[in-house]
Computed example of a mutant assay.
Amino acid sequence: MKFRLMLLPLALAACSQTPPDHADGAPAATASTSVPAPAPAPASSAPAAAFDTATLAKYHWRLTEATGGDGKRIDALFVRPDHPLQLDFVRDRLSVGNACNRLGGNFSVQGNRLKLGQMAQTMMACADPALSALDSAISQRLQGQPKIQLKDEGNAPTLSLAGDNGDTLVFTGDPTAETRYGGAGETVFLEVAPETKPCSHPLIPNKQCLQVRERKYGANGVVESSGEWQPLYQDIEGYTHEPGVRNVLRVKRFAVKHPPADAPSTAYVLDMVAESAIAPQKK
């Protein structure tokens, strides 16, 4: 009887031992062993690429195509064939040129949508009813939050605006003066005399030059000084002179990098006509 009591603790100890390992060193599997499933790969959380608004500011965007949801050309947007509708994006503001009036408003690009704030416009009256209707025609399509797409495939870049009603407008980019000359330029005011005068030009016989002088204004908008009249041996980009009309122009003056030997080192680009008056006839 005493012998049997001594064996009982040994038997209990043998039952509690860990199962032996396999010969290859791996632990033996038991019925209670569970292998955890691999964690799923995390979903990509990379943000969508921001729209390239910097490229918008580098070009004048001129309307070249416009089709409706029926696939037909929207003729109402092409009433000025020689001066197509033009969009300009400067910082956070969009302006529309070559309509009846000048239109503009603050803009943003959210996702793939162009969002435009309340638009303001000048109050010019246009005799042509089709031209008057152009303001409303382009304004409605811009304020409808169209989908915006920018493509730059080597030639001229294109900007597409697609409305939810199926209208699609395509604009082609023309580099701004700042893009072409590589800088912001200097804003100056030039008074242009009513009449041109003969001037000596090495490459253009019988050249007629604009007579200009620079104006400087004070903080109150009053003219502080005017320079001496002098011939301008080059054109002002965007300006067409009408004989007998005196103009004050706000222009951008750019330094031309590496100009040819026979070309000017400065370029003038019209920003706006600040004043215009018909000169009195000489008796």
Rank of each mutant, 00 (worst) to 15 (best):
L5N: 14
C15I: 14
C15G: 05
S16C: 08
S16D: 04
P19D: 02
H22L: 03
P27C: 00
S34T: 12
V35T: 15
A41P: 14
A41Q: 14
S44H: 02
S44G: 10
A48V: 14
A54Y: 01
K58P: 14
K58F: 11
Y59D: 00
H60I: 00
W61L: 00
E65I: 04
K72W: 13
V79I: 10
D82R: 07
D82L: 04
L85C: 00
Q86P: 03
L87E: 08
D88H: 02
F89E: 03
V90T: 12
R91E: 13
R91P: 02
N98V: 05
N98G: 01
L103Y: 04
K115R: 08
L116I: 15
L116R: 11
A127H: 12
D128L: 07
A130W: 07
Q140K: 12
G144T: 07
E153L: 12
P157G: 04
S160L: 07
G163I: 01
L169K: 06
F171T: 06
T172S: 13
R180H: 08
G182F: 14
G183E: 12
T187D: 04
E191C: 01
P194Q: 01
T196H: 00
H201L: 00
H201K: 02
Q208C: 06
L210N: 07
L210M: 07
V212K: 10
V212T: 15
E214N: 06
K216S: 14
G218V: 10
V222T: 14
S225D: 12
S225C: 03
S226Y: 12
E228M: 05
Q230L: 04
Y233Q: 10
I236G: 02
E237R: 10
H241S: 05
H241C: 00
G244S: 05
V245D: 07
R246S: 15
L249P: 15
K257A: 03
P260N: 11
E275D: 10
K283H: 15
